[in-house]
Amino acid sequence: MTAAPTLPTDQQALAEEIYRLMVAQGALFAVDTPIRQTLANLAAFLARREGRDRAELEAVIDAALSADSRFTREVVDGEVRFVTSRQGAYVPRDDTDTHSFKQRLHEPEHPLPIDDISVVVSTSRPAITTVEPVYISDYWQMQLAAAPVESEAQAVAAPEAPAPVVEPVSEEAPAAPVAAPAPVVEEAAPEPAPVALEMPAPAPVVEEPAPPVAPAPRPVQPPRSTVFTLSDGTAIDLRRPVDEIMAEHGELLAQVLAERLEHDPLQRIVRFGRKYYPEGSLASFGKNDLRKIRDYILERNEPLLDTEIIADLYYHNPRQADYEGFRFSLNYRLHREKDFEFVGVEGAYLWATRGLAITSGKRVKAAEMGQITSYLVEGYDDSPELQSIEAIRQSGNVTRLLTFFEWEYGVLPLDAGLAALLPPPLLPDQRSAVLRFESPQHYTTYLVEVRFPAGNRGGWLQGLEEFFHEHLVPGALITIARTGEPNLFHITYEEGPEQSERLLTFDEKKNRLAFANVSFYCVVDEDQLPTQSRYGRLNRLKAFPMGERRKAELMLEHVSEIIGDQVGTPAEPRYAVTLDDLYVAFNVLRPGSRAYLKALLERGEDFSADESTPGLYYYAPAPRASTEEVEEEEEELPEERPPLRQRYSSRYDEDE
């Protein structure tokens, strides 16, 4: 690599020696890195080593190195320096990039003028996918700007349909513009009748020839009514304070507006529950979002609050300005998805998903339970007689006795008393709500599903089976009370000393009722406690399949026959039974109120009331048909009765 300079031998040797010296100094440099040394330093070093005169040596070195092509001479601030490198003569590195692809990619040949960088590129990265704005062409923007602006008062007075010309009431047609009356406002009449009703026969507007007069300095507005009427004739005077109008007509106006927004073909304002939000401002949720939410609900294995979903999956802070809008968007989107079911109430928006078992135990199918509790919607709900609705609303709690059926299956019929205590459904098509029942006596919590009544189906609560079996017996008095949270309730009972009784139990494996020794620690109503000593024949009741138990008349006949006292003959049996005993026994097989039982007894052909003893009834079953006749009837039955799905609404089909 080193050059071979043609120099006098002594100069050549000197240059070679200095080159080796400088390369030794820069031994660790890169091969093309410059190695610099001043002439003074070189002369001083060699003068000391060889004992020669320094000034003379400087001249010799300068001549030798200047003639050698491996060295470059440079003068900095009057000082002579020589530069070389490990590869010989120093050549400055050329960093010029000969590739132009990057430049051609990023720099357009004819760039468009921009006012704001955010027009060209997004300067922020959104956390979630967002709806791209829809740009409207300049043509339509100009059309919009040219459109006449409609004032509010006009919008009200002349809304959608072309309005007929209405003359001012009790005013004569003005003869000339200058004579037109000043703007007047109707005096508030004691009963503000709709203006249109006060009109005389419709008179055409006649323009009289105006006499020549000086033009009025300011155009005078025709008088305008401030009383408006709704479609049902309700008059509203807009001069009254808004608070007064809201107090008197707020609900009606809200109903009119809600209908209007619902039927808006563009759906510009959308609704969830009682809240409204612009459709264009909704945050977007894609399929991945929905799958993520569904997986999370299944992972947690219980319905989740919307706020939990947002906090855990989207890390959205409630203090963020767009939090409520994002929350509305989530609820609105999930409500439109068939994989999600809203099971919340006002103040606690809970979401369940397909495949999530909300409450344990599927012992009673929803379709059957809806029919069993249908007596509640048929007018046989006597719960307000025990505790008035007003008292329940004021006290915030409801107290009731447990029947055997309720205790066994952990189910409570949703009667008027419970409905007054529990929150109503938030959405019009809401099927169920999930509440949390807390036992302050045992520090346990239960998820309770409330199934709302629908059509001819009754409602009920389910999910308390474990609590009932662990702490209570049939006949116990329970109290359900509201708490500060809309979906949290307390369930309590009165504790008592230990008692042991032989009580009715249901052996599910053998599918039969039996008496067993049970110890319990709660206060009970002795009349409702199904003990062997008092209701010794209850274990003879047949544990019908749930589908059969829907037939209340059949159950009543069976119960009367089992627990009634035989007062007839074997050929013509006749059973005497009291209403109180019937109530206890009937509620072993299925729920039923006393009012319902009375109605069944009154319309049952084989039942008769004892006129001397109130509450005592006789059951005299009709002579049984022969076996052949029964078989014939059974053969005809399938032809007469339509299939189950045709007989009942499809609401609970998926539960069957």
């Binding site: 008062a153 703007p183 507005q221 807009l238 001069r239 106006l253 409204y276």
Partner: peptide, 25 residues
């Protein structure tokens, strides 16, 4: 016009009342 629940109705009534008031003045 429906502007950040009955709140929508109230807001619109306020707009109308204001328009009526201004016209009377």
């Amino acid at each position: 016009r429906l502007w950040t629940d009955t709140d929508l109705v109230r807001h619109y009534l306020e707009i109308l009342s204001k328009a009526v008031r201004e016209e009377n003045e």
